[in-house]
Design a protein around this nucleic acid. Structure first.
Length: 901
RNA sequence: AGGGAGUUAGCUCAGUUGGUAGAGCGCCACCCUUACAAGGUGGACGUCGCAGGUUCGAAUCCUGUACUCCCUACCA
């Protein structure tokens, strides 16, 4: 491939294979250097903006991003070309847990823990890491072709964003919407931090249900409780039964003795207990179970914490202190067995929460945390979706969104991490007052003491993400950027972060900007592997998009995504399919290469894209392809406007490959090689115009190859990326050269050629054999059309000779009927001496069979009085024509059949 | 348990107001026809999950049902 490097810019010496590596980096650099990605804060153009969901700053670009970005870039490029002031704002996320974990892992290689290093030095280390790897994902985005406005790139720990975060925190706190409380939260032992409900993944686990006897205090027997977590009995502060349960009613109010530690606890009654499950008796451990927590609150029970921050047994666990939970469980079961208190063990499948970051089992853990009260924020966030101010696409996500908001719980926003926005609260050692402030505080606002300590915790990463649409645009200042670009037009993301991110952005946008952050939430599916599994490191089925780009080119990857973007459905990624679109890129490349080589002597017209060929000189092929161009432009426009992006991409694929390449180029070869200079010049102009439109139409999908070809065209502008997106309304004069009559003519010629090819193919006649063909026509107009296209028929049908006129003698001839509208052409090929007739007889019989079926079905339909009475007139008329045509065809074939006998 | 989505050709999937089922890949046959073998031409292949209903007519609308997937919640 490299031998082409030096000649790549010479139109006549293009490689016969499209080599993306020769094009992509160079083109991207040129776009960026030329400032084409930049949007203006003030402009006469209408604004169009998208905020990129910020990827993790130290992460890699994965397939999910590649899909997500392709959609956004397509929208941005399309709108930019359509006259909008298109702004795509990139950024990266500090990703608290993820990034901190990565750096901790690095330290572990040197046998250092973050605690040994200390907070300040550890955070410095992470910054170092960020500076080293923070731009990696940006350069990968450039590989994909992302046309972001890079000058606006923002990092969540940038000063501006950090200010926004503090302002929002203080403001919500003032309103009473942020509060601190000792609550049971999801705790990740390995990370030593609280995590939110959303960060917990529930997995079905095969566990054991242990039935344990708790001796009654009065020695009258035992109460059997069933539990999957016997180790927590050390923290039991009650045993509960259902108040309606006759078996235990008499015991309520009495005490049982906890085994192993011999602590006395009450027997209480609560409707929460299901009589049917287990033994109907539940041990209550308020500090380690969410339901027990509620029961503990209502019954005023004691809360006994059994765990350390590492989620190991603590001093309250007595002899079991220091053990891991699993070990403690084992030991306790052994000890219970020894005391004959374990009644039975039965297998039990239940779901257990796991930390989505570390994979560890999540422990409910009692601790002091900060929360955001959600009810008040959720109400307006529901309303804007209900009333259509924000639209979800596909619409079905609306329900999911609303359901979640209707059942929302308060959001635990504090994390016991070091990497992130530190909570802006200072505690006074003297008066215990806590000062909440936007700026750093050196003295207690109440007593003036300088003996202050800032809260050690940082905020959940999603807290800053929730502000992203306005914190990146200069808020709280009323900046020009905000005025122009807020609210944004689209939010493009996968459905996995609707709750984490989308919902919270809507709440915060409404709370602080008094307006929605975006108009449309475009939800796409997840990229899965070819078997439909999630791509994950542990499965080893991840595919690296950059590797795919290197192998097949960015355009092919992008086109693969867009062509399969069907209404939010997951996308099974297959390399084979990508290969197919790589081939399409090559097809485009070669069509352009061919066209350009035939435009070597073509002089670019001064009118540029407004240049029209002389109507007297254009061929029917030119007229036809312009008709098709008009159709595809309309189809693309309608599809893009209604967000059916795959339809737009597929319409272009079909137009370029099946109409422009397969037919138009083949039809016009004789003209380009012919002697009629005027006709040739007209065709050259049409080709130049078609290529100009094709490249622009393709640009949002396949930016690199379209720009590369565009730059070589005789009719072009400065840059494809900045030129106008083709619209029917702007090309009226050119498209007016097309006509329905030309479409009819070419359709007929295509049908005849296809019929000839069919006879040749089915009879296995070598393409090297030139055929003699007779075309039987019954109509002067049809005869004239065929006569005019005699040359095309001969070349594309690989004919020796052609006669057009009466059908004549059909003895030992293959016959096929080409039908377009009311025109019928009998295609007659004498086979004597070419083939034995077996194949032809098979072909004829096969066709007769099919026609017989058609006829009987059409007859049945048309003789049905109710059909004739109820169906649309044009439907009936169409069926009548079909029937008549079928009858003609079958007669011809039967006739031919007899002449072979 | 509640909610959502899906079931169409060997595979992956389209199918926009109901009107004789489509694409790509794969497969078979023939071709290196001077843009492209990452190509060309032709061909085979589907009772549209199942059962009812509405209708002259259903892949499409309605009801039920089976299976698959996803989400949320619960599981002592």
């Amino acid at each position: 491939m490299s031998e082409n490097n030096n000649s790549q810019n010479t139109a006549t010496h293009l490689s016969d294979r499209y080599n993306p590596a020769d094009v992509e980096n160079r083109t991207y650099q040129w776009w960026e250097d030329s400032g084409f990605f930049k949007a203006q804060d003030q402009s006469t153009k209408p604004p169009f903006s998208i905020i990129l969901p910020p990827p993790n700053v130290t992460g890699f670009l994965h397939m999910g991003h590649a899909l997500d970005h392709t959609i956004q870039d397509m929208l941005i490029r399309w709108k930019r070309m359509s006259g909008f002031n298109a702004m795509w704002l990139p950024g990266t996320d500090h990703a608290g847990i993820a990034t901190q974990s990565v750096v901790e892992k690095e330290l572990r290689k040197e046998n250092i823990t973050r605690h040994e290093l200390g907070r300040e030095k550890f955070v410095d280390k992470i910054w170092e890491w960020k500076h080293t790897y923070g731009d990696r994902i940006y350069s990968q985005m450039r590989r994909l072709g992302d046309s972001c406005d890079w000058d606006r790139a923002t990092f969540t720990l940038d000063e501006g964003v950090s200010k926004s975060v503090r302002k929002v925190f203080v403001s919500l706190h003032k309103k009473g919407l942020i509060y601190r409380g000792k609550r049971l939260v999801n705790w990740s032992g390995p990370l030593e931090t609280a995590i939110s409900d959303l960060e917990v993944e529930h997995k079905q686990i095969k566990g054991t249900l242990f039935h344990i006897n708790y001796p009654l205090e009065d020695g009258s027997g035992f109460l059997t409780v069933a539990t999957t977590r016997p180790e927590t009995l050390l923290g039991d502060t009650a045993v509960a039964v259902n108040p309606e349960d006759d078996r235990y009613r008499h015991l309520v109010g009495k005490n049982v003795i906890l085994p192993l530690i011999n602590r006395k606890v009450k027997i209480i009654a609560d409707t929460y207990v299901d009589k049917e499950f287990g033994s109907g008796v539940v041990k209550i451990t308020p500090a380690h179970d969410f339901n027990d927590y509620k029961v503990g609150k209502t019954h005023n029970l004691e809360f006994i914490n059994l765990l350390t921050k590492k989620a190991e047994m603590n001093e309250n666990a007595g002899v079991y202190a220091g053990l891991k939970v699993q070990e403690a469980r084992k030991r306790i079961i052994e000890d219970l067995k020894e005391q004959n208190l374990l009644v039975k063990e039965e297998p039990h499948v239940h779901s257990v929460g796991h930390c989505s970051r570390s994979g560890a089992v999540v422990e409910p853990f009692l601790s002091e945390q900060w929360f955001v009260k959600m009810d008040q924020l959720a109400t307006p966030a529901k309303r804007v979706v209900e009333n259509g101010t924000i639209r979800f696409e596909p619409e079905s996500w609306t329900k999911v969104y609303l359901h979640w908001l209707n059942n929302i719980e308060d959001w635990c926003i504090s994390r016991q991490l070091w990497w992130g926005h530190r909570i802006p609260v200072w505690y006074c050692a003297k008066c215990e007052h806590h000062t909440v402030s936007e700026s750093d505080v050196s003295a207690c606002e109440k007593c003036g003491s300088t003996n202050l300590k800032q809260d050690e915790d940082v905020l959940d990463t999603w807290f800053s993400s929730a502000l992203w649409p306005f914190s990146t645009m200069g808020w709280p200042k009323d900046s020009e950027t905000l005025k122009t670009f807020y609210p944004t037009n689209y939010l493009v993301t996968g459905h996995d972060i609707i709750f984490f991110w989308v919902a919270r952005m809507i709440m915060m946008g409404l709370e602080f900007k008094r307006d929605v952050p975006f108009r449309t939430v475009y939800i796409h599916g997840l990229v899965r592997d070819s078997q439909g599994r999630k791509m994950s490191k542990s499965l080893g089925n991840s595919i690296d998009p950059v590797e795919m780009i290197e192998k097949y080119g960015a355009d092919a990857l992008r086109f693969t995504f867009v062509a399969h973007l069907y209404s939010g459905k997951d996308l099974k990624f297959s390399e084979q399919r990508l290969e197919g679109y790589r081939n399409f890129m090559n097809k485009i490349w070669n069509a352009a290469r061919f066209a350009l080589s035939n435009l070597a002597d073509f002089k670019a017209p001064v009118e540029g894209i407004k240049a029209l060929p002389n109507i007297a000189n254009i061929s029917v092929f030119d007229q036809w392809i312009l008709t098709k161009l008009g159709e595809v432009m309309k189809a693309v426009d309608e599809a893009m406007e209604s967000e059916r992006f795959s339809e737009a991409a597929n319409a272009l694929y079909h137009f370029i490959w099946n109409e422009f390449c397969d037919w138009y180029i083949e039809f016009t070869k004789p003209i380009l090689n012919g002697v009629n200079a005027a006709e040739k010049a007209a065709t050259q102009l049409v080709i130049a115009q078609i290529l100009n439109r094709i490249t622009r139409l393709l640009h949002p999908f396949t930016p690199f190859i379209s720009e590369e070809i565009y730059q070589k065209l005789p009719i072009n502008g400065q840059a494809c990326i900045m030129d106008q997106y083709p619209m029917v309304i702007n090309d009226k004069d050119l498209l007016a050269l097309g006509s329905q009559q030309s479409a009819f003519e070419i359709d007929l010629v295509k049908e005849v050629i296809t019929a000839i090819r069919n006879i040749r193919g089915e009879n296995r006649i070598s393409p090297a054999v030139k055929l003699n063909v007779r075309l039987g026509v019954n109509n002067d107009q049809v005869q004239k059309i065929l006569g005019n296209n005699r040359n095309a028929l001969i070349v594309m049908g690989r004919l020796e000779n052609i006669e057009i006129g009466e059908a004549g003698n059909l003895m030992k001839c293959a016959v096929s009927t080409a039908i377009v509208k009311d025109a019928e052409v009998k295609v007659i090929i004498p086979l004597e001496g070419l083939v034995d007739f077996d194949e032809e007889l098979k072909r004829i019989n096969k066709t007769i069979e099919k026609l017989t079926k058609d006829i009987s079905m059409l007859n049945a339909k048309l003789s049905n009085e109710k059909f004739v009475a109820n169906a649309d007139e044009d439907v009936i008329a169409a069926d009548r024509i079909l029937l008549a045509q079928a009858k003609v065809q079958i007669e011809t074939l039967r006739d031919a059949l007899t002449r072979f006998q």
